[in-house]
């Protein structure tokens, strides 16, 4: 696409912008995490056997489920904020407030799910 960038990977990761930077980078981590999980899940279901069993064991572990639930829930809620604000640009004036609402929705939902996942994972 004719892009000319002089910014290396390390410089890109060190970037710290104003409000919304945390949601920006967590959205990327969440998207990549889901990509990894869905790839593993499709490969495990397609090939099966010992290979599939090994992959199954990884993503059925409670620690992986805590991570992947973070990815899915955060990406979904943050993505809804981005979509609503981008399709109705007048709302962009309230971006900071929208991010606060987003955290207020995300944190309780995530903590309840983590409590359940860890309790089941610990055999309770």
């Amino acid at each position: 696409m004719g892009l000319k960038r002089d910014v290396s990977l390390a410089a890109g990761l060190r970037y710290r912008g104003p409000a919304g930077y945390l949601t920006f980078i967590l959205h990327r981590i969440g998207g990549l995490g889901m990509g990894i999980f869905i790839t593993m899940h499709i490969l495990a279901s397609f090939f099966g056997g010992r290979f599939g069993g090994t992959l199954n064991g990884i993503y059925e572990h409670w620690a992986f489920q805590v991570f992947i639930y973070f990815c899915v829930l955060f990406h979904a809620i943050n993505g809804l904020r981005i979509t609503i604000l981008d399709l109705w640009p007048k709302l962009l004036d309230y971006q900071t407030e929208a991010i606060w609402i987003e955290w207020a929705v995300f944190i309780p939902l995530y903590l309840i799910a983590v409590y359940v996942i860890v309790r089941v994972g610990a055999g309770g």
Partner: peptide
């Protein structure tokens, strides 16, 4: 993401 973090064409 690749466009943002990978400098070489």
């Amino acid at each position: 993401i690749a466009d943002d973090y990978i400098a070489s064409e």
